[in-house]
């Protein structure tokens, strides 16, 4: 699947030091997991958790979702050991905490390239999701989003961000408005995804639902989650509406017709249909199909035409 079309609506944190929760990763219906070696793991368990996560990822053969792990920051004593231990188990990528500057991400990029060479892997295999979680990180995120082709998404982290600002995080999130917008701009401008911060009060489904609606409206493509109970709510809100699906189907039909006529552009009810619109329609339909709302597959050929 083309990178920009990978669906990452729900990205669930799973503590890296808890086997009972790791074992359930295959059965949750989230799009991706962040196996956490950073904040969820106490200092005296860092080594054990790292080995546990490595064993789990190795044994997770039939991958039905993307597997990222949140390493400890590069300037901690654990960061590089996390990478050296876990990467050979072949996760999809790394969530990098405290990605305050593009230089930090570039440093990780270089190290990942070395690892890929040593492991005999394709260069660029391991993806990076930088955490934008400080005032500095927010200011620099426009550059961070473009600093490496490994960066597939920016992840906003509001807990650390509010701490860096010396402010309280509220459930309505007015204090996050500027930062969220900037992260979304940076991601959209770079053509990558934007993932919103966690919502900590698992039992408050109402406020959580409101927040998911808000961030979807701002342009975020997904959200970091701390409890599996939050997954379905995100999917429901991110699910395309019935009208949206019907319109997307019409667009795909129209472009198929256009291609048969030997052109890449066609008018549908007075509106011009071209590549970006087809791409968006395909994304809607793929999302709908993944939710079981429709039963059709959209091939890359339909989106891009045959060469």
């Amino acid at each position: 699947m083309e990178e920009t079309l990978s669906i990452r609506r729900s990205l669930l944190y799973v503590p890296g030091n808890m086997p009972s929760m790791l074992q359930n990763i295959p059965i949750f219906n989230c799009d991706a997991v962040f196996i956490d070696l950073e904040d969820a793991v106490p200092m005296n368990e860092k080594d054990a958790a790292r080995l546990l996560v490595k064993s789990f990822i190795q044994s997770y053969k039939n991958r039905n979702k993307e597997v990222f792990f949140r390493m400890n920051a590069l300037d901690t004593e654990w960061g590089y050991d996390d990478l050296l231990t876990v990467l050979p188990a072949l996760p999809d990528g790394v969530r990098l905490p405290k990605a305050d500057t593009p230089e930090i991400v570039e440093r990780l990029d270089t190290f990942l390239t070395e690892c890929e060479e040593n492991l005999g892997l394709e260069i660029g295999r391991f993806k990076i999701i930088p955490s934008i979680e400080s005032a500095l990180g927010v200011i620099n995120c426009i550059k961070t989003a473009r600093c490496s082709s490994r960066v597939i998404a920016l992840a906003f982290g509001a807990e650390d961000y509010t701490t860096s600002m010396g402010i309280e995080r509220t459930k309505t999130g007015e204090e996050l408005f500027q930062a969220r917008n900037r992260v979304v701009w940076a991601a959209k401008a770079a053509g990558i995804q934007a993932i919103d911060t966690i919502f900590a009060d698992v039992s408050d489904e109402e406020s959580f639902t409101r927040e998911v609606r808000l961030i979807k409206g701002l342009g975020f493509t997904g959200k970091s989650l701390i409890n599996p109970r939050q997954i379905d709510i995100v999917h429901k809100i991110f699910a395309p509406g019935k009208d949206e699906i019907e319109y997307a189907l019409e667009i795909i039909e129209a472009i198929k017709l256009a291609r048969e006529m030997g052109t890449g552009v066609i008018s549908l009810r007075g509106k011009m249909i071209d590549a970006p619109i087809v791409k968006r329609a395909a994304r809607v339909l793929r999302t709908a199909a993944s939710l079981g709302m429709i039963d059709i597959e959209i091939s890359d050929e339909v989106i891009h035409g045959t060469k």
Partner: peptide, 11 residues
């Protein structure tokens, strides 16, 4: 139950 596994089974 609030257990995610129990909730998944229930659903």
């Amino acid at each position: 139950t609030k257990d995610p596994i129990g909730l998944m089974i229930a659903k």
